[in-house]
Computed example of a mutant assay.
Amino acid sequence: MQKKLSVLVVTCALLGLSGCGLFSKSTDESKNVSASKLYADAQDEMSGGHYEAAIKLYEKLESNYPFGTYAAQAQMNIAYAHYKANDQAEALAAVERFIKLHPNHPQVDYMYYLRGLINFNDQLGFMNFIYAQDPTERDPKATRESFAAFKELVDKFPNSKYAADSIARMNYLIDAMASYEVHVANYYYRRGAYLASLNRAQSAVTQFSQANAREEALFLMIRCYDKLGMYDMRDDTQRIFAKNYPDSRFMGGKGSGDAPWWKFWSKWGPEPSPKDALEAPQ
């Protein structure tokens, strides 16, 4: 019995060693894949829209070749792949990690731009396009964060090739924030909370003086002043309104007839990827 037990122990030990050898061989084979091969495979997965598979390959590339030519681009592509997969939290985490690790990278401006895009597109989901929902009815947190990201890009990198697009998006975001204030003001007005409505409308006028929503905010102020019996303020505001918006639709005019400011998706072409932002490493 003792002899049989000894044989069994030895056999198990040999099998364990054999298994370790096989595992090590498998690991070694993975590590022996070249950086260029890993990168090419990851790019193929990305092109096919297989973002999770692409992320795993980019992460393997970064792990196996942390100081290689491809490492920084792999990190950028990881952030972009999470963004395309609609994983906002992981995309933002990857962006922040890249900026922290490579603050002086020649293409770090792209990551600031991507940070803005992640929040910019968060305020308009796919269902919004289908049902034409006005995004001003949603929490403006993503709008504010997107504006801050684009502003940081423009402030830090005024000559960036993404600056002009960022400024254009910032203008729309200003309208978004102003329109949110007007939406809340209308909400209060419909419920008879005229003072609260007036305060939100005034906020839209004073904080976002160039926004398209300023027209409706001024008109709402006129109505609130009237409901509150503040007739002098009503008449003064009405004179300002008539001077600035003589053909306003709110006063019976035809107005501009333009589509709502938030129907902007035809304004821009395809959003650039890190592959466009960086030359592929040789």
Rank of each mutant, 00 (worst) to 15 (best):
P66W: 03
K56N: 10
A164K: 13
S209Q: 03
D155L: 09
K275A: 14
N159Y: 08
Y231C: 01
S160Y: 11
A72N: 15
A85S: 15
Y194I: 05
A93C: 00
P246Q: 09
D165M: 02
P158D: 02
N104Y: 06
E216S: 03
W262L: 11
K100N: 13
A85F: 01
G49C: 04
G192A: 03
R223V: 07
E29Q: 06
I118M: 11
K254R: 13
V7M: 15
A132M: 10
I118A: 14
D155W: 05
P106E: 13
A201R: 08
E145H: 00
T206C: 04
L218Q: 14
Y65N: 02
S6F: 12
Q43L: 10
S248H: 01
V182Q: 08
Q133W: 09
A148Y: 06
Y231D: 14
F126H: 12
F219Q: 02
R169Q: 09
Y70D: 06
Y162V: 05
F23H: 09
Q207W: 05
Q123H: 10
Q282N: 14
L8I: 14
G116M: 03
L92Q: 08
L17N: 06
V95G: 00
A149E: 13
K56W: 00
Q2W: 11
I78P: 03
E62D: 10
S6A: 15
T237C: 11
L124S: 13
N128P: 01
Y189W: 04
S266P: 12
A35Y: 11
K263W: 10
G229V: 06
F126A: 15
D276T: 08
E52T: 14
I78G: 06
C12F: 13
L8K: 08
M233Q: 13
K267R: 15
N32H: 12
Q282L: 12
R97P: 02
K25Y: 10
L61K: 08
I167P: 04
P103Q: 03
W262K: 10
A277G: 02
Y80I: 05
T11K: 09
R115S: 14
Q282H: 12
S36W: 11
A142G: 02
A35M: 08
D236M: 10
S209T: 07
K263M: 15
Y83E: 05
R223D: 08
L8R: 11
K161I: 03
R234V: 00
S203G: 07
L173Q: 02
M76S: 08
A242S: 09
A211K: 04
K254D: 14
K60H: 11
L15I: 14
S63M: 04
F250M: 10
A259L: 08
W265E: 13
R200E: 05
L22E: 12
S47V: 06
Q238M: 10
N32M: 06
I55Q: 01
Y83R: 01
R169V: 00
A132K: 09
F150S: 03
K254I: 14
R239W: 01
Y245W: 04
A142C: 02
A259H: 05
L17I: 11
S160W: 10
F126R: 09
D235A: 09
F67N: 10
A185K: 03
E181R: 11
I118V: 14
K267A: 12
K37I: 12
F264S: 12
I55A: 05
H102V: 03
I118P: 06
